[in-house]
C-alpha cells in the first residue's frame, strides 16, 4: 500500500514527541534531542518530493532521524571526549566482580514460566533498567541491540576501538542483567 504525506505544518504536532523520545533514548541529552527533531523535520521538508510512499510517514521520519543520530555521534566524537575513557576506568564493575574476577552475585534462573521475556511488562522493566545505566552504556546498548546498528558503524561514528566497545557493552549487559534479576525475575 502506498502511503502519502500529511501537510508539513502538521508534522511537529503529529511526530514531534515521538521523534524527541526516540532521539532522547539514544542521545541521553535533552538539548541535543530537541535539535535533532528540528534538523530531522527540516531535512524532511527538503526531501518531501522524494518520498516514495513505501514506508509510513512515521517510519520515514524516524529513518531520517536515525541518520541524524549517527551524524551527531560522528560530530561530537571529533571533539576531544574524556567520557569514554572515564567509562572504561570506572570502578563501577567492582560491584559485579570480585578482585579475582569472579561473579559477586549468584543470579536466579531466568526460566520461570510466569516471568517470560515476551511479556509487554518485561519491556517496561527492561526500559527502566536501561535508563539506570550510565548514559554512555545506555547509548551503546540501544544503538547495538535495539536499533541493530553494526558494531563497526558505531565504533566508526564514535571513534572508539572495537575492544573498548566490547568492554563497555559487556559492562552494560552485566548491569542490565543484575537489574532485570532484581526487578523482573525476583520481583
Amino acid at each position: 500500500m502506498a502511503h502519502s504525506l500529511s501537510r508539513p505544518s502538521e508534522w511537529l504536532g503529529l511526530y514531534g514527541d515521538i521523534l524527541y523520545r526516540y532521539g532522547y533514548a539514544r542521545l541521553r541529552d535533552r538539548d541535543a534531542a530537541e535539535d535533532l527533531v528540528q534538523e530531522t523535520l527540516i531535512a524532511a521538508l527538503k526531501a518531501k518530493d522524494n518520498y516514495a510512499g513505501q514506508a509510513s510517514e512515521r517510519t520515514w521520519l524516524i529513518g531520517i532521524l536515525k541518520h541524524k543520530i549517527i551524524d551527531h555521534f560522528r560530530k561530537t566524537a571529533k571533539e576531544p571526549s574524556q567520557e569514554y575513557d572515564d567509562g572504561l576506568a570506572g570502578a563501577d564493575e567492582d560491584e559485579f566482580f570480585d578482585e579475582r574476577g569472579n561473579w559477586q552475585h549468584d543470579v536466579s534462573s531466568w526460566s520461570k514460566p510466569d516471568k517470560s521475556l515476551e511479556q509487554t511488562q518485561f519491556f517496561e522493566v527492561l526500559q527502566r533498567c536501561i535508563d539506570c545505566l550510565p548514559p554512555r552504556l545506555a547509548q551503546l546498548f540501544v544503538l547495538r541491540e535495539i536499533d541493530g546498528i553494526d558494531t563497526e558503524e558505531i565504533c566508526g561514528a564514535m571513534t572508539i576501538t572495537p575492544n573498548n566497545f566490547w568492554v563497555m557493552m559487556s559492562r552494560a549487559r552485566v548491569q542490565l542483567r543484575h537489574c532485570l534479576d532484581l526487578n523482573w525475575f525476583n520481583a
Binding site: 514531534g16 514527541d17 523520545r21 533514548a25
Partner: peptide
Amino acid sequence: SPMMPESFRL
C-alpha cells in the same frame, strides 16, 4: 522502540 515513556515530551 522508542523506549521513553509517553509523558516524555517536547
